[in-house]
């Protein structure tokens, strides 16, 4: 079957088998390998992308289900024009929120969605929001700090971007 979807604002299309998982569509058909996978049971969240604005686990979503919809991946986090990092990305760097980098794209997609809904989450809220994204390196501490960093730098950065 042929599917067409917007990925990070760009129209993509491919002839696929119906059973193709969205994570494979993104990595193989769209060539966007920033989205990783780490399990088969929708537990780890490494494959988290946005589908129509909400984070989903792309290992447990068929590409066919995203046909005609909009997907956003880690490659779509930074400003498409200037290339400036999203505050979440900057926060992960500033607070050492990543080590091996494997869970990071999914973790950041979850974080960005959280901040879009709740611009000033406290630590408990952040911990709950990222509880479906496993990280084996950081013990989560610096991820929580990174998201707090992004929360406290959203306004500043958006002003800088608009200026």
């Amino acid at each position: 079957m042929r599917v067409t979807m917007k990925v990070n604002g760009q129209e993509t299309t491919a002839e696929i088998e119906p059973r193709l998982l969205l994570v494979h569509y993104l990595r193989e058909s769209a060539g966007l390998t920033g989205t990783h996978w780490g399990c088969d049971t929708s537990n780890c969240g490494a494959c988290t992308v946005w589908l129509d604005g909400a984070p989903v686990k792309s290992c447990t979503t068929l590409a066919a289900m995203a046909d005609g919809h909009e997907v956003r991946t880690v490659e779509g986090l930074a400003d498409p024009v200037t290339g400036d990092l999203d505050p979440v990305q900057q926060g992960f760097m500033e607070e050492h929120g990543l080590q091996c980098g494997f869970c990071t794209p999914g973790m950041m997609m979850t974080a960005r969605a959280l901040l879009d809904r709740n611009p000033d989450p406290d630590e408990d809220t952040i911990r709950e929001a990222i509880s479906g994204n496993l990280c084996r390196c950081t013990g989560y501490e610096n991820i929580v700090r990174a998201i707090r960093w992004a929360a406290t730098h959203q306004t500043v950065d958006s002003q800088e971007v608009s200026a």
């Binding site: 990595r27 966007l32 390998t33 920033g34 989205t35 990783h36 991946t73 880690v74 490659e75 986090l77 930074a78 990092l85 990305q89 992960f92 760097m93 500033e94 050492h96 990543l98 980098g101 494997f102 990071t104 794209p105 950041m108």
Partner: peptide
Amino acid sequence: MLRKEDARFLRGQGHYVDD
């Protein structure tokens, strides 16, 4: 010191075997 390797990881530009 902020990590040098972060620049690629943050943008989804890490290069793992499966990539």
